[in-house]
Amino acid sequence: MSADIAAERIERLAALAEAAVADGEFDRSREYVRLARRLAERHRLSLPRSFARAACGRCDVYQRPGVNVRVRAQRGRVIRRCDCGATARYPYTD
């Protein structure tokens, strides 16, 4: 499998994870995120930034604001708090 095919598959898995969370199937979403991460590691690819930031680093669930994550903007950063208790902070500029 070439890197291009792997990158396409990672994007497809990201879309599937997002759709699974929208349907309330968090375990299925977790499996898609784990598959995408393993695929990226195997082919030495980085996950797309939007996907990497939307997936919880602790429980591997795809995060959807208002459903399973609380998002706040505070002093130049975005704070995402997952239902599992994990907190991620990312800088942002106006």
Rank of each mutant, 00 (worst) to 15 (best):
R30G: 15
N68L: 11
R42L: 12
C56N: 05
C59I: 04
A22R: 07
R80A: 08
S50I: 05
R44W: 08
R72D: 14
D94M: 01
V69C: 05
A52T: 03
L45D: 10
R70N: 13
G24H: 10
E11V: 02
L47F: 07
C84D: 04
D27R: 03
D4V: 11
A17I: 06
V67E: 14
Y32S: 04
A36L: 10
R42Y: 13
R80V: 07
Y90A: 04
S29F: 10
V33E: 05
F51L: 07
Q63M: 15
A17F: 01
S46N: 00
N68A: 03
A3C: 11
A86F: 00
G24A: 01
R12H: 09
R37W: 11
C84Y: 01
G66N: 04
R64G: 13
R53L: 11
G85V: 01
A15C: 09
L45F: 00
R80W: 06
G66D: 09
A19K: 09
E41Y: 08
D27L: 14
R28E: 15
D83G: 05
G24I: 14
R81G: 07
A6Q: 00
A55L: 11
A7T: 05
T93P: 13
L16D: 12
G76S: 15
Y62R: 11
L47N: 12
A7M: 09
A22V: 01
S50T: 10
E11S: 11
P65T: 06
G57I: 00
L35N: 14
L16C: 09
I5K: 05
H43K: 13
E41F: 08
V78T: 14
D27Y: 02
E8F: 01
R12F: 10
V78I: 15
L35D: 15
R34G: 01
A7K: 10
E18C: 03
E25K: 08
L47P: 00
Y62I: 06
V71P: 04
E11I: 04
V71I: 09
N68G: 05
R53E: 02
N68W: 08
E31G: 06
A54Y: 09
R64T: 12
R64C: 02
L39C: 06
E25I: 13
A86W: 02
A52F: 12
G85Y: 08
R72V: 14
E31I: 09
S2H: 00
G24N: 04
R37Q: 05
E8K: 08
Y62A: 05
C56I: 04
C82K: 12
V71S: 09
D23E: 12
I10A: 13
L45G: 10
A54H: 07
D83I: 03
E31T: 13
Y32C: 12
R77S: 15
V67F: 14
A3N: 03
A19T: 06
C84T: 05
T93C: 07
R75C: 15
E11G: 03
C56R: 00
C84H: 09
R80G: 02
D83M: 05
M1S: 08
R89T: 13
Y62N: 11
G24V: 03
Y32Q: 05
T87R: 07
D60N: 01
A40P: 06
A55E: 10
Y90M: 12
L35Q: 15
A55M: 04
R49T: 07
R9K: 03
D83P: 07
A19S: 14
A22H: 06
A73Q: 15
R89G: 00
T87C: 07
R38T: 10
A73Y: 15
V78S: 01
E25L: 09
G85A: 03
